[in-house]
């Protein structure tokens, strides 16, 4: 029996030491927001925070987790989706199928904690999770927006980011051709 602190709650887990943290969280703790994508730390769908650090939980064995470690999953990131990253994700309508987005949001939250106002290059380097639907442009816009919400606290700034994001889209009534 292993003690696990997930989202501020302690769980007694009966799993083998080589069980990946991902499957411990999904099958023993019972939280399924953290996703299985590859099992080899390539895609990042399984991203969680351990003591505030971003970890790809599919490749992190239970034996490496200490009882004092504080694990945060997508379910514990905020109350009622209030984290600036979640607010920005909704404003930009980032998700398509949504399967990778728990991991994307956890990666973005981790980036902003370390670097409250990242440049495009910082985002390139930090946001390496795979999204097969191809939401990358919106992820970038939403990270910038979340940074603005975080550091300047201004709705107006966020609105400007949204306008920047949508500036790429033009609809022209072409009439009959």
């Amino acid at each position: 029996m292993v003690k696990l602190n997930v989202n501020g709650k302690t769980y007694d887990v009966n799993a083998e030491p080589d069980t990946p943290l991902l499957w411990t969280i999904r099958e023993h703790v019972g939280l399924t927001g953290t996703k299985y994508g590859c099992g080899v730390a390539q895609c990042g769908a399984c991203s969680v925070h351990i003591n505030g650090n971003l970890v790809r939980s599919c490749s992190y064995p239970l034996s490496a987790v200490k009882p004092t470690d504080k694990i945060t999953t997508i379910e514990g990131l905020s109350a009622k989706r209030s984290h600036p990253v979640q607010v920005a994700w909704a404003a930009v309508d980032v998700p398509q199928c949504g399967y990778c987005q728990s991991g994307q949001i956890m990666a973005a939250a981790s980036l902003l904690k370390k670097n409250p106002h990242p440049t495009d290059r910082d985002i390139d380097e930090a946001m390496t999770n795979i999204c097969r639907c191809g939401t990358y442009q919106r992820i970038r816009a939403a990270v910038h927006m979340a940074a603005d919400l975080n550091t300047k606290g201004g709705r107006q700034v966020a609105t400007d980011e949204l306008l920047n994001h949508t500036a790429g889209l033009t609809v022209v009534d072409a009439g009959k051709v």
Binding site: T32, E75, Q86, W89, G98, I105
Partner: peptide
Amino acid sequence: TVNKLDGSK
């Protein structure tokens, strides 16, 4: 979108 933001979907 909503339940794709907090893992509840």
